[in-house]
Design a protein around this nucleic acid. Structure first.
Lengths: 197, 197
DNA sequence: ATTTTCACATACGCTGCGTATTTCGATTGA
DNA sequence: TCAATCGAAATACGCAGCGTATGTGAAAAT
C-alpha cells in the first residue's frame, strides 16, 4: 500500500515548515537560503514553490504556527487565574516570557513586521492579539476596566509587553531584568482599572 | 578654485543618505536596489561602499538621521508643557503622531528592528528612548511617578506608543483612530503615577 | 613638477529567488 | 490488470543584486 498523495504532501509541508522555522530562527529571514532549507528537509525548491508560492508564503506559514502556539499557551496560563484581571496580567506576562525564546523573538518580533507588515493584518490574524482583545472586552463589560477603546487597550498592552521582551532579551542578564519589566508592567496596567486598589 | 575633497565627500554622503531615505521609505529595505539608489543620487555603488561599508551601514545612517529628528521634535513639544508629567505624555503622543508618517513607519518601525536588531542597541543609540528615559527618571526623582524601574518604564511606554502608531497607520481611517489610541494611552500611563487623580 | 593619496567608478563573480519545463509515481476508470 | 490522466516535486534556466577587486583621475603633499 503505497503512501497516499495527500499524506505525503502534508508530511512534506510539515517538514518544510519545520526546516524553515529552524532556518529563519537561526539566520533571520533575509539570510535564510531556500536551497539550504529545502535540502535540509530532504526536498528541493520545487516543493516549496508548489506548496507556499514563495519565500514569504513559507514565512507566513511559520509565523502562523508560532502565533497559534503562543496564543494557546497564553490562554492556558490565563485560564488558571481566578479573576479576569489576573488572567489578563498572567497572559501578558506569559507573552513576555515567550518572547525570551530566540525563535519567537527573531521570527515574530523582528522579521515578522518587516516581511508581513503590521501584525494586525497578518494572514494568521495575530491570534495573540485576539486573545488579549477578548479578555479586555470582557473586563470592560464587567466594569473592572475603565470603558476605554478595547482594541486600543489590547494593542497598547501587547505592544508594551512585546517591546519589553525585546529589551529583556537584548540585555546582558535577561533573568535578572525580567522581574523588573513584569513589575513595571503590572503598575502600568493598573492605569486601565476602573477602581485601582 | 576647485571644490575641496572633504566638501564634496560630505555633499555626496548627504546625497546618498537622502536618496536612500527615499528609496527605503518607498520600497522597503529589501526591495531597495543600491544601483538605482546611488544612480538617483548621481553616483555609483562605489561611493556607497566607500562611505558606508555596505547596505546595512547606509541604512543605519538613515535611521540615525530620522531618529535624531524625531527626538528633537519630541523634546521641543515636551518642553512646551508646564509639568514634567504632561511633558512626558506630550512626548509620547508626539511619537505616535510621527509614526503616522509612512517614512518613519517603514524605516524605523518595520525594517529597523529586522535589519539592525533591537532598537536599544542601535548605532544611533535610539535617541527617542533616551528622551523618554530622561523624563521618566526625573519624574521618579520628583516623586510624581511611582519608584519603578526607569528603564523598564521608558521601554514599556515607548513600546506601547509606537505599537499603537502601527495599528493606527494600518487602520482604514487613521485620523479617526488616533484620538482613541491617545486617550487610552493617557489612561494607561496613569498607572505609573504615584498619586493618580 | 612630480609623486602620492584617496574618493569614486568600473568590472567581475557569486549567490539566490522565481519561473518554465520536465519527470515519474499515484490515482482513476475500464 | 493495464492504460490514461493527474499533479506533486525535481530540474533547468534567467536575471537581479550585493560585495569585492581593480582601475582612474583629480586633489593634496613634497
Amino acid at each position: 500500500m503505497a503512501t497516499r498523495r495527500i499524506e505525503t504532501m502534508e508530511k512534506n509541508r510539515a517538514a518544510l515548515i519545520a526546516a524553515a522555522r529552524k532556518a529563519f530562527a537561526e539566520k533571520g529571514y533575509a539570510a535564510a537560503s531556500m536551497d539550504d532549507l529545502t535540502a535540509a528537509a530532504g526536498l528541493t525548491r520545487g516543493a516549496l514553490y508548489h506548496n507556499f508560492g514563495d519565500k514569504r508564503g513559507l514565512f507566513a506559514a511559520v509565523v502562523s504556527q508560532i502565533d497559534t502556539e503562543m496564543a494557546t499557551r497564553a490562554k492556558d496560563i490565563g485560564a488558571r487565574e481566578a479573576t479576569g484581571w489576573n488572567a489578563l496580567l498572567a497572559e501578558a506576562e506569559a507573552y513576555i516570557e515567550m518572547a525570551l525564546n530566540p525563535e519567537v523573538r527573531r521570527i515574530v518580533l523582528l522579521d515578522g513586521p518587516a516581511v508581513l507588515g503590521d501584525p494586525s493584518q497578518w494572514p494568521s490574524q495575530d491570534t495573540c492579539l485576539q486573545v488579549t482583545l477578548t479578555a479586555v472586552e470582557q473586563l470592560i463589560a464587567e466594569g473592572v476596566m475603565k470603558p476605554v477603546d478595547p482594541e486600543a487597550a489590547a494593542r497598547l498592552l501587547s505592544g508594551a509587553a512585546l517591546n519589553a521582551a525585546l529589551w529583556i532579551a537584548a540585555s546582558e542578564d535577561p533573568p535578572a531584568v525580567l522581574p523588573r519589566a513584569v513589575d513595571t508592567f503590572r503598575h502600568l496596567a493598573t492605569g486601565l482599572l476602573a477602581d485601582p486598589t
